[in-house]
C-alpha cells in the first residue's frame, strides 16, 4: 500500500468482493483518481496504535530499568521479605485476563449491533478493572502497614543492621509519644495481656536494653531487627509464611526495620505498579464515558480503540506479575 494514486474504473467498489469482473475493461470510458492513505486503517485506530507504540517504549524503559537494577543489585529481597503475596498477584492476573475477554466480547456485540449486550460486557469490564484496583489498593495498604514506602520519612526500611540502624531504633524509642506508650505497656498487668502480647512485651523490653547497651555487638542489632520484623525464611512448606514481629504485635510501635535491598525494591515496585495502576484507572474512566453512549455498530470503532488500550494494560501486567511476584 502506498501513497500513489491508482486509476480505478468507476463502480469498482461495488464489484470489489467479486473480484474484477467484465466491466473492468468495459465501456464506461472515464477514470477517476482515488487516493489511498499510507496505512489502511481509520484515523482513530492509527492514533491509538501510535500511542501504544510510545507506551511500549515507556513500559519497556521502566521494566528494563527494573531488570537491570534487580540483577545488578548485590542483594534483592525475596517476595516474602517485602510481604508480597503470590496468590493475590495471581488472582489479579486472572481478573485482568477476564476483563480482556469481556471487552473483546463487548466489541463483538457492538459489531453485531447488540447494544445492550455490548453495554453489559463493558460494565463487566469496568467492574473487573475496579476489582483489580481494589486488590492493588489492599496490597499497597499491606505494604504501608509494614513501613514499606518508596521514600523517607514514611519508609521504615534500613538496608542492614548496622550502627545507623541502631541509632534510628534508639531515636524512635526516644520519641515522647512512644515513651508514653511504652510506659503504659510496661504498667499493664500481665493478666490483661494475651500470652502473645506478654511474650512480645518481654522481648521488647530485652531489645530496648540491647540497643541502649554500651557494649553492643553487631549481632545484637541483627537480633533487634529480627525481633522488630523478621525476614520470613523459606520454611518447610516452601513458602515461609508471615512471621509476627514486634511491629505487627504493637502496631503503634513502628520501629525501623531491616530489609536488605528493600529500598530499591520499594522504589521500583511502587513506580512500576503505580504507573500500571494509573493506566488501569484511565482505562476505567474511558469505559465509564463509553457506557453513557449507545454501544451499537457505529461505536464499534471507539470500543475497539478502548479495547486495544485495555489489552495493552493487560499485557504490561502479564510481564509485571512474574517479574515482581515470582522472580
Amino acid at each position: 500500500m502506498n501513497l500513489s494514486a491508482h486509476s480505478i474504473p468507476q463502480g469498482h467498489d461495488h464489484h470489489d468482493s467479486h473480484g474484477h469482473s467484465d466491466d473492468h475493461g468495459g465501456g464506461h470510458g472515464h477514470l477517476t483518481l482515488q487516493y489511498q492513505p499510507g496505512l489502511p486503517l481509520s484515523k482513530g485506530k492509527l492514533i491509538m496504535w501510535l500511542f501504544l507504540s510510545t507506551e511500549i517504549m515507556f513500559f519497556a524503559a521502566l521494566l528494563g530499568s527494573y531488570v537491570v537494577l534487580r540483577f545488578g543489585a548485590p542483594v534483592w529481597p525475596k517476595p516474602h521479605h517485602v510481604h508480597l503475596s503470590e496468590p493475590i498477584g495471581a488472582f489479579n492476573t486472572f481478573v485482568l485476563i477476564c476483563s480482556s475477554v469481556t471487552i473483546v466480547l463487548a466489541l463483538e456485540a457492538a459489531r453485531a449491533n447488540k447494544a445492550l449486550q455490548a453495554k453489559n460486557w463493558m460494565l463487566a469490564t469496568l467492574l473487573l478493572g475496579s476489582l483489580f484496583l481494589g486488590v492493588k489498593g489492599y496490597e499497597y495498604a499491606a505494604k504501608f502497614s509494614h513501613g514499606i514506602y518508596p521514600a523517607q520519612p514514611h519508609s521504615l526500611i534500613y538496608e542492614k543492621p548496622d550502627l545507623y540502624y541502631g541509632a534510628a531504633v534508639r531515636a524512635r524509642l526516644g520519641e515522647p509519644a512512644i515513651i508514653d506508650r511504652l510506659k503504659e505497656l510496661d504498667d499493664t498487668p500481665e493478666d490483661k495481656l494475651s500470652s502473645e502480647e506478654a511474650s512480645a512485651r518481654r522481648r521488647l523490653q530485652k531489645i530496648r536494653q540491647m540497643v541502649m547497651s554500651p557494649d553492643q555487638q553487631p549481632f545484637d542489632l541483627a537480633v533487634v531487627a529480627d525481633q522488630v520484623m523478621p525476614l520470613p525464611s523459606e520454611g518447610a512448606d516452601g513458602h515461609g509464611g508471615h512471621a509476627e514481629g514486634l511491629n505487627d504485635t504493637f502496631s503503634w510501635l513502628r520501629l525501623p526495620t531491616v530489609i536488605p535491598g528493600g529500598n530499591m525494591w520499594a522504589s521500583t515496585y511502587f513506580l512500576l505498579t503505580g504507573f500500571h495502576a494509573i493506566h488501569v484507572a484511565v482505562g476505567l474512566l474511558v469505559f465509564a464515558i463509553l457506557l453513557t453512549f449507545r454501544l451499537d455498530r457505529k461505536r464499534a470503532g471507539m470500543i475497539e480503540n478502548a479495547g486495544l488500550y485495555w489489552h495493552f494494560v493487560d499485557l504490561v501486567w502479564i510481564f509485571l506479575f512474574p517479574l515482581l511476584y515470582l522472580f
Binding site: 542492614k160 502473645e196 549481632f219 529480627d226 523478621p230 509476627e244
Partner: peptide, 27 residues
C-alpha cells in the same frame, strides 16, 4: 560499607534462629 550484602541476609537469618532472647518468638 553501607550497602546491603548477602552476608547481611545471612546475619539476619542467624539472628532469627539463634533465640538469643531465650524466648521463642513467633517464628
Amino acid at each position: 560499607l553501607h550497602m546491603a550484602r548477602p552476608s547481611d541476609v545471612k546475619l539476619m537469618e542467624r539472628a532469627g534462629e539463634a533465640q538469643v532472647l531465650g524466648e521463642a518468638s513467633a517464628h
